[in-house]
């Protein structure tokens, strides 16, 4: 299942602009990491948190000097969205917050993977 932009249109627009502003080389690295995830439904990093007992949240580093990507998967459907792109590695709580906004859900619980 392919990685998608979030359903929240203003967030999706902001993320698309953020990607567009990357240099061509950084953008190629970013999209390559996403292409691998599209091809293999395995996230290259460990799960960071579980949001509301339903959404798996991951923080992925596509490469040195490439922004971190927060990905959030709805375990009910398997759908995976980009929740945020950040220069600094987000804390688990921040990643969960980004995932909540991307999926349009209130953060009720955050399960942390030790």
């Amino acid at each position: 299942m392919s990685v998608r932009l979030p359903g929240d249109e203003s967030l999706a627009d902001r993320l698309a602009k953020r990607i567009e502003q990357m240099s061509p080389e950084v953008r190629a690295s970013f999209f390559s990491a996403i292409a691998v995830i599209d091809d293999c439904p395995t996230i290259p990093e460990e799960r960071t948190v579980i949001l509301n007992h339903r959404f798996d949240v991951f923080v992925v580093n596509p490469g040195d000097n490439v922004p971190y990507v927060v990905l959030a998967r709805d375990t009910a459907t398997g759908e995976l969205v980009i929740a945020e792109i950040a220069d600094e590695k987000p804390t688990p709580k921040a990643a969960a917050s980004h995932a909540g906004r991307a999926w349009g859900v209130v953060v009720h619980s955050i399960g942390v993977t030790p």
């Binding site: 392919s2 990685v3 991307a102």
Partner: peptide
């Protein structure tokens, strides 16, 4: 939850 947007690809 919201429906996801377009594929990043």
């Amino acid at each position: 939850p919201l429906r996801p947007g377009r594929p990043v690809a």
